[in-house]
Amino acid sequence: MTKPRTINTEAIVLRAAELGEADRLLTLLTPAHGKLHATARGVRKTTSKLGGHLDLLTRSALTLSYGNQGTGLATVTGAEALDSFMSLKADLRALSKALYLGELADTFHPLEAPNPPAYTSFLEALQALESPADHDLVLRSFELRLLDLCGFLPQLARCVQCEEPVLPGGHFLSPAAGGVLCPACKPSYGDALPISVDALKVVRYLAANSLSSSLLVNVRLPLHRELAALMSSLLRYTLERELRSTAFLRAIAQQWPKAEDVPSRTA
C-alpha cells in the first residue's frame, strides 16, 4: 500500500544531524507513525521559518511531505512548536536527564513502528522533568515503562528459573535470565545482582503504574543508587551497549550534586 504524500502529525525531535549546506536530518518520534527520519531544509539559516520549531526535544505539529509514490525520506514542509520545554532546557541537570531519555527513546524505537503509549510515556516524562518532581524517579519510571511497552520487561513476580513466587529477602536480578532469581537459582547466572526488598517493590510498582502514580513514591538516596545501578545493568544487557548520554548525565550529577549548585540560566 502506498503511503499518503503528505501527513500531518505531532512529533518530538529526538535527534538533529547537520546535512548539506544548511539542512538538518531529523529523527522524530510521533504517536501514530512511530519513529521517522525527515529532512528539514534551510533550518540552520537564521532566517529559517521552521528552525525554531524543530530544535531538539521540541514538540511540534508538523507537515511531512513524501515523494510522488509516498516513498523516500520525508521533508518537513510545515512546523509549529506546541511545547518547547523552555524551563527544562534552562536547567542543566534536567536537560542532561531529558537528553538521556531522548537517546533511550531513539534507541528502543525501530523506524515506522507506531507505539502510541510509548510516545505518551516519553511526553509525560519530559513534562515531569519541568516540574519539581523527583527527577531520578522520572528516569526509572520511564525506563521501566519503555521496557514494558517494547516487550523487554523482566519477570518480577516469580523466580524466572524455578517459577516459585518471590518471597521477601535474599533475591537477585539477572538481566541475562530476564528477571528475578531466588537464592537457589542464582548460581546459574554470573551476572545476577542482589536486589533489596524495597528495590524490588519499587521496580514492580513503577513497572505497573503510570508516571503520575509512580511520582507519589518516596525514594531515599541509597535506594535511588541501587535502582540506578540495577536499571543501568538491565539496559546495558538489553541494548548490548552503554548509552552515550549516560557519561554526561553522570558528569553533571557528580560535578553539581545539588540542584541549587547549577545556575538556571546563563546571564
Binding site: 531538539l56 526535544l57 532546557k89 534552562a90 542543566l92 546563563t266
Partner: peptide, 25 residues
C-alpha cells in the same frame, strides 16, 4: 542558540562564574 549550544553555554557559565566578573550571552 540551539539546545546543544545552550547546554554548552550553561556548562561553561557554571565553570567560569568564580573566575570572571561579567558573563554575557
Amino acid at each position: 542558540p540551539n539546545l546543544e549550544g545552550e547546554a554548552t553555554a550553561m556548562y561553561i557559565h557554571r565553570l567560569v562564574s568564580p573566575l570572571v566578573p561579567k558573563i554575557t550571552r
